[in-house]
Design a protein around this nucleic acid. Sequence first.
DNA 1: CTGAAAGCGCTTACAG
DNA 2: CTGAAAGCGCTTACAG
Lengths: 349, 349
Amino acid sequence: MPKTRDARSTVTLKDVAERVGITSSAASMALADHARISSKTKAAVRQAAQELGYVPSSAGRALRNQRAGAVALIVPNTSQHVFGHSYFMHVLTGVSDAANAHDSQVIVSTNSDAENGVAAYERVVRSRSADGAIVTSSAVDDFHVEELVASGLPVVLIGNFPYLPGSVSIGIDDVAATRTLTEHLIDVHGRRRLVHVTGPLDHQTGLDRREGFLETVRARGIEADSQIVHGEFNEESGRAAVAAVLAEGREVDGIVFANDDMAFGGLQELKRAGRRVPEDISIVGFDDFGLARVTTPGITTIAVPAEEMARRATERLFDLVDGRFEGPAHEQLGVTFVARRSCGCPDAA
Amino acid sequence: MPKTRDARSTVTLKDVAERVGITSSAASMALADHARISSKTKAAVRQAAQELGYVPSSAGRALRNQRAGAVALIVPNTSQHVFGHSYFMHVLTGVSDAANAHDSQVIVSTNSDAENGVAAYERVVRSRSADGAIVTSSAVDDFHVEELVASGLPVVLIGNFPYLPGSVSIGIDDVAATRTLTEHLIDVHGRRRLVHVTGPLDHQTGLDRREGFLETVRARGIEADSQIVHGEFNEESGRAAVAAVLAEGREVDGIVFANDDMAFGGLQELKRAGRRVPEDISIVGFDDFGLARVTTPGITTIAVPAEEMARRATERLFDLVDGRFEGPAHEQLGVTFVARRSCGCPDAA
DNA sequence: CTGAAAGCGCTTACAG
DNA sequence: CTGAAAGCGCTTACAG
C-alpha cells in the first residue's frame, strides 16, 4: 500500500553528495565543517543542501550517534492531578527554552493509565527516544522515579527529594517559604489562632510546608491555638477543610493553605459562611501560578519560579548527558513573597 | 571521552536472539508474531526479551520503517501569547491521549524565536522526527501553516481555516456561539446598548466572533446602539477597551468580550469605575478554560471543548499518516453555553 | 520452509 | 591526504 508520505520528497545526504559529485561521507564531513574538506567543496555542499532543502534525518543521526537528540518531560498522572495546568505550562516553557538552545526536541510523556507493566516514561527512555528525562513527580512513594534514577539514565528531578540522595534535583525551600507566610500573618497582621491546611503528606512539598508552619507557631509560642487540617492540594479539599474547621466552632483568625487552589476553595467556603476575608480571617496560599492573582480578594502567596526551575533542570540534564557533570546535587532557587489583599495587605499595583 | 550512558545496558534484538540461539531476523519476526515462527520459539523469544528487559530502539525502527512513531504538537509563539496556558494543557492532554492509543510519542515544538530561516516546526517535520503535525496557530497570515499544509505532510489544524481549502481541520462554530451569547444578553437580560470587544482581527476566531455579534445586533435591530472596540485577547486589552468605552461617556448595559481573559480585564476596570456587574452592566466572555469560573462574579461564557478537539484532530492525523483518509475536510464540534453571574443569571451549582 | 543479506540515513574509523 | 567500508538496530524481501 502506498503511503501518503511517498508524495513528499525526502532529501538525503546522498542526494546532496550526488549533486556535488562526491560521496555522502564527504558531504557529511563538509556539512560538519571538517578540516579535511576544502572550503570550495564545503561551499558547494552547503549550497546544494540549501537548494535541495536537505534536513538531516533524525533517525539516521540517532542511530549512528547513539543519541536521540531529544529530552523527555515526564508527567506522572499522579502529579498531574496534584499540580495544575499553569504549573506544567511554566515547566514546559522552561524545558523547551533550554532544549531549543541545545538543538534538542522535547518529548512530553503523560502516562494516562498508571500501571501497564512498564511505565510509559520508562519506555520513552528505554527505547532511547530521549537522551534523558526531566521528572516533575513529587510523590514520595513513587518508586518509578527511584528506579529511573537508579537505572543510570540521566534524570533531573524538579522538587526536593531528600530520600533520593543519588539524585540531581532543583527545588525551592518550602519550609522557609511557609515560615515566611506564617510569620507574616502573625507579625504583620496580628493573627494568633492559625490553621494550616496541608497538601498530601505523601508529597515532599506537603511535608515541608507543614513543617514550616509548625516551626513557626512553635517559635512564636502559639502552638496550642493552632490546628492542622489535611488537604489534597485541590480546590475541593480546601473547601472541605474550611467547612470542617468552621463546623468545629473553634476560633480562627488566619489560615495558611499549602497551595493557592486550596486557598481559593477555602475562600469560597468562608464567603459562603459569611466570614469576611481578610477582615475576619486572613488567608495565604502558595504557588502563584495564576489563580491567586485573579480571585477576589487576591490571595497572598509565595511565587514559585517554575519556569526557571525547569530551565535550570534541563541545563543540568544536558550537563549529565554530555558527561560534563556527575550527580548527585541539589540546587535551590529563591522564591518571592507576594502580598495581596487576602491577608489584609493592600492590593499590589 | 566515555559517555555517561555507557554505564547503562542497552539490550538489542541481537542480545535477545543470542540468548535463544536464533538470528535477530527470526527474533524480530517472533516478537511481531509472524506466522512462520513456531509458537515454541515465539514463547522463548518473548521470555528472553522479558528477562533482558528488551525495548526496541526507536531510532532503529524509525530508520527501517521510515516512520518516526511520533507526532508533533506545534505551538507558534504568536499563538502562545494569544491563547492561554490552560488552553494548551487541554490540547496537550487531548493529543497525548490519542497518541498514546497509537503507541506514538508526542513532540512539543514551541518555536520561541520567530524567524530563524526554517521555522522550528518545519525542522521537526523535515527531519522526520514526527510523522505528522497538529498545529494550533490561528493567525490568518501565518504563511508557515500554509506551507506546511502545501508540503504534503500530514497536518491537522485546530481551528477554522476557510482560507486554506486544502487543509484538514477541527473547529467550533464561533459565529453561532457568539450569536448565542449576544442573544442571551438581549433576550434574557433585556440589554440593548451593547459593546463587542473583539479579538485580534488577523485571527479567524477574532473575525468570526465579531461576525456573530454583528449578525445578532442587526437581526435584533439594535445595531445603531452597538459599538465595536478592538482587543487582543489578553486581559490588559480588555481593561483598556472598557476604559476607552467609559471615557466616551456612552450608555452601555452589556459587553460581549471575545474571550474570558479580556472579560476579566474588563470586569476589573468596570469595578474600578464603580460600575456593578451584572447589576449595571452584563458581561460575557468566551472559552471557559478555567478563569471564568474563578472570578467574582463568575463569567458567563461558551465552553470550548479544546481537549476533545485535540483528540479528534490527532485521530484524524493518524488517519492521514496511515493513508486511511484523504483531506480536505473540516469538522466542527459542539460547544456549551455556561451561565454564570456576570450576565445576571444566578450562579451555577 | 528458513537462513541471512540488504538497506533505511547517517558518521567516523580504517584502508590505501 | 582521501576514498569508501563498516556499522548503529531494526525489518522484510530475497536466495537457497
